[in-house]
Design a protein around this nucleic acid. Structure first.
Lengths: 340, 340
DNA sequence: TTGAAAGCGGTACCAT
DNA sequence: ATGGTACCGCTTTCAA
């Protein structure tokens, strides 16, 4: 009974049948014991024999087989294309995973880079998750939502710029951020306003709505808005700063604090006064923005907490009958510091 | 318990049997058609009928059932506890996911926060991944590796400070970073050197080895090393800066660029000259560090690329016979700018 | 060219 | 207190 289990990496994976055989019981008994099934009484000696056998063989149940039989999973799928670098996103993501685990769900992030909307939805549906929380990087269509629901997903939740038909949509209207930033600049007396558009891939879905919001806010006040493509490196920023006076702007909303810090430094190095000649405002309220001189003004963004989102997932899973709801949860506030 | 008509959400999930019935063929034929099995010839009219039926029903195959039958998966499990916030990590992670997808693996990030080593290994093993790439946030034990391999994992790869027995270990000796930073400070004539220890959760596994490396480097040169707990907020930094002169340090390695920027600003605000009175060096070579004045000196860290790691996974999966290898891949270089 | 049927690994009902 | 067994959904021989 004590054969050294080492050495044989080729040995096949032990199943509950192997455990049953070694313990001299049936597979049913193995299942009862290992799952602590209360409805059935198993004698203590038997329990011990089963447990020992499982231990000896290094038995680990097969999740796919179990959920196949059960007809459902506790998997919450979190599809992502790019994992954004920011600390906000990272904190949110950690919170969400943690909160889901506490509610006894298994959070699985599924990399879906390079898949189109419906194609992606199909791939997700194959995994039969109980819920899908799409963070808006992969465009989910109404048809995709339908596919997911038909595949058994109780909750399909999207977090993005626009509601998706059929899904429970948390609308984060990015345009609010751009509008808020520009309104702030206008209030500070600026009328010719640049809007930085990051050239990095995957940013478009965020920065285009923000530009749109900026335009909207400017329109009401007779201000001019100028899109400014910018890559996240010093050369690109220096080039932009060099031709700054020819563009003739007195304010700029730089997408977020990181781009704002980059651009503000380049402007200063080019001899352009901030905020005297040009006001700069970022977004995200990063700690680092407070370290520069002048301190960076920013737009503080309300982010749904992972905790609340997890609770929403749970609620919808337990009562999918409650129809899809669209909920607006973007809040944005300008925080004036010294750069505007 | 009479429930209202559940707006078709309660309709059961279509299976290949449903498709077969609708198309008037057997389940076998459905499988052949939908998988484009070349070994079997199916007439074109039949193919079309099957495809149409699948389309009508919104049929999506059940991944668990498929892999149960197949006896293996193409899932590469990437367990993570905290998703680190940094841009380095984020880029690495995206690259890895992308590269794995190109090799036809399915990258799945599995949130394992709050699980201990062996407990976590068991949870991962239940999913029967073909490979596990542990990024060192969850301590993997030799026993855990054994459990995973017994459950059928062809490749168990760890990326962390120490090799793990039985696993293919990519050793990133964090102590190299601390050693490199302190060596640099010593070379710049500093002898009383602080080492910032972030108080945020999940940082310990990184910052303790770095401190150890700092001590090692200092020992050879008769320099003194002082650990400095610091939270990532302005108050904590200001408090540390206030008592700076009583600690009597002439150089500090601030864990990474973010903490370094925070501390450097606090020191300057407290009237302590950088680098005149105290030299500051960070790590990670962030772009933002170049924007401060003085420009932040840093330690540039070699990170394995996602591409190469994906290739390694593939190689080990295809030839698990090749025994576990330990490979050292930490490279670190001090980059002097102006703060040291 | 197609279908019947045997499993893959677990779970849970129904006997004993 | 246990064991036998019929599934879950899919793939894949082997026959027809």
């Amino acid at each position: 009974m004590s054969q050294p289990p080492e050495q044989s990496a080729e040995r096949s994976v032990p199943t509950s049948a192997d455990v049953a055989r070694l313990a001299g019981v049936s597979r049913a008994t193995v299942s009862y014991v290992l799952n602590n099934t209360t409805a059935v009484r198993i004698s203590e000696p038997t329990r011990r024999r089963v447990r020992e056998a499982a231990e000896v063989l290094g038995y680990v149940p097969h999740a796919a087989a179990r959920s196949l039989r059960a007809g459902h999973t506790r998997m919450v799928l979190l599809p992502t294309a790019h994992v954004p670098a920011g600390p906000l996103y990272s904190r949110f993501f950690n919170e969400l995973q943690w909160a889901l685990r506490r509610l006894d769900y298994t959070a699985v992030q599924y990399g879906s880079l390079g898949l189109g909307g419906d194609e992606a939805a199909r791939a997700w549906a194959e995994l039969r998750p109980v819920a899908v929380v799409s963070l808006g990087e992969v465009a989910l269509t109404p048809h995709g939502v339908e596919v997911l629901k038909r595949s058994g997903a109780k909750a399909v939740i999207t977090l993005g710029p626009r509601p998706v038909e059929g899904a429970h949509s948390l609308v984060m209207d990015q345009s609010e951020i751009g509008a808020c930033a520009v309104a702030h600049l206008v209030e500070r007396g600026r009328r010719a306003i640049g809007v930085v558009m990051p050239e990095e891939p995957g940013m478009k879905i965020f920065c285009e709505p923000r530009l749109e919001g900026a335009r909207r806010a400017a329109a009401g006040d007779g201000a001019r808005v100028e899109p400014l493509p910018l890559a996240y490196d010093e050369n690109s920023a220096a080039a932009l700063a060099d031709r700054w006076r020819t563009i003739g702007l007195d304010g700029v909303y730089a997408y977020n604090d990181q781009y704002a810090m980059l651009l503000m430094r380049a402007l200063q190095d080019a001899g352009i006064g901030v905020p005297a000649e040009t006001a700069v405002v970022g977004a995200d309220d990063l700690l680092l923005g407070k370290l520069l001189r002048p301190r960076l003004s920013t737009v503080q963004i309300d982010m749904v907490t992972g905790q609340r989102l997890a609770e929403l997932v749970d609620r919808v899973v337990r009562d999918p009958g409650a129809g899809p709801v669209t909920q607006d949860l973007m809040g944005a506030r300008a925080l004036r510091r010294e750069s505007s």
